Amino acid sequence: MPAFSLRLPQDLERRLGEEALHCGQPRSELIREALEELLRRREQQRFMAGLVAAAEALMRDPSARAESLDVAADFLPADCEALALAEETTSRELTGQPSPQPWWR
């Protein structure tokens, strides 16, 4: 595993040391976890920004927008059925009633 040195402000180094003592982990492990979380969050933000950009591009294109609305309308009955099944399952779980045989069997 490659290693590198890192300069931290005193306050941040103090807080890192306190957290390491509190949770019983090495400081290097805490830094790795923080870096992994930061990178995961930034990757997710870039992915979401790409989805938003693509959706906005489709929204500005009248023919693509019309096609998207048609597809959504085609899937609406199946979406409603799936939601009703999910709500029924959740309701049965909350009341302790046995679940019926799955519809796909």
Rank of each mutant, 00 (worst) to 15 (best):
P2R: 13
P2L: 04
P2S: 15
A3E: 13
S5L: 09
S5Q: 12
L6M: 14
L6W: 13
R7M: 09
P9I: 01
Q10Y: 08
D11L: 09
L12N: 02
E13K: 10
R14W: 06
R14I: 06
R14C: 03
R14T: 09
R15C: 04
L16A: 05
E18L: 12
E19S: 03
L21S: 00
H22P: 00
H22K: 09
C23F: 07
G24P: 02
Q25P: 00
Q25S: 08
Q25A: 10
R27G: 05
R27T: 12
L30N: 06
L30P: 02
L30T: 02
I31V: 11
I31Q: 00
E33G: 02
A34Y: 07
L35P: 00
E37Q: 11
L38Y: 04
L38R: 02
R42G: 01
E43T: 00
Q44M: 05
Q44I: 00
Q44N: 10
R46F: 04
F47A: 08
A49S: 04
G50K: 04
G50C: 02
G50H: 08
L51P: 01
V52K: 12
V52S: 05
A53V: 01
A53E: 15
A53D: 14
A53G: 11
A54P: 01
A54T: 03
A55T: 00
E56I: 01
A57C: 03
A57I: 00
A57G: 07
A57L: 02
L58M: 13
M59H: 15
M59Y: 13
D61L: 11
P62G: 09
A64M: 10
A66W: 01
A66S: 13
E67T: 09
E67H: 07
E67P: 00
D70S: 12
D70M: 04
A72D: 03
A73M: 02
A73S: 07
A73L: 03
F75G: 01
F75T: 03
L76M: 06
P77Y: 05
P77E: 05
P77N: 03
D79E: 11
D79H: 06
E81Q: 11
E81T: 06
A82D: 12
A82W: 08
L85M: 13
L85C: 06
E87Y: 07
T90N: 00
T90C: 01
S91E: 13
R92W: 13
R92Q: 15
E93N: 07
E93M: 13
E93D: 09
L94P: 01
T95N: 09
T95E: 13
G96Q: 08
Q97N: 11
Q97V: 08
P100G: 14
P100D: 14
Q101H: 14
Q101N: 12
Q101P: 09
Q101L: 15
P102I: 06
P102Q: 10
P102Y: 08
W103C: 07
W103A: 15
W104N: 13
